[in-house]
Amino acid sequence: MSLIELKSVSKIYRLGSQEVQALTDLSLTFDAGEFAVLAGPSGSGKTTALNLIGCLDRPSTGQVIVSGIDLGTASPRQLADFRLQHIGFIFQSYNLIPVLTAAENAEFTLMLQKVPKRLRREKVCKLFADLGIDGLEDRRPSDLSGGQQQRVAIARAMAANPQVILADEPTANLDSHTAEDLLDLMRQLNQEKGTTFIFSSHDDRVISQARRVIRLEDGYLAEDIRITM
């Protein structure tokens, strides 16, 4: 059984009186342990596809099946629970909560899961060490560099041990050196822990690291290439 399955999914947005077809009849399957990228120019439907995979949004037509469960009919509340248990997110602009420290940001999903404070802190300290940002636990996001913030974001995504981590343009705001480091790190996590990573990106550095490249054009699937090393 595949981990995530999109079955002829379409998504139509309404912008005022206009309708925008963001995705058309997209069918994709992801297995556990993949390191895949959704590639394509802006407006090609990458983020929309990622939102559907991450259960942030519901398709206009078609089905999204995760771990065998059809989430097309789930309530927002059920979707929220599902995300909390199974999915981690990394965003382009990090989106850390400015009033919380780095460690508190990373603990956030654990807090939502009602994990006791001591256990949370232990776990996050270990993650910080793994991610090479130990010692920054009590800093505020505004005191961190872009790379450091994105590592905190990764720690936040990883903290609850999700099966899948979705990353929307994770390197777009970073310089190439930092971007390389970060990709290496995620590649390492993918190999060591078996966490599935799905990116959306038009960054060649990301695409070149990926084991599967899914190209979207104008909301259609253009190509789906698996690279074996």
Partner: peptide, 16 residues
């Protein structure tokens, strides 16, 4: 609002 979007994406329920 943006932050709330992120918090919801992370898996927080609207009630929370």
């Amino acid at each position: 609002m943006r932050e709330f979007g992120v918090i919801l994406a992370l898996g927080s329920k609207p009630m929370v």
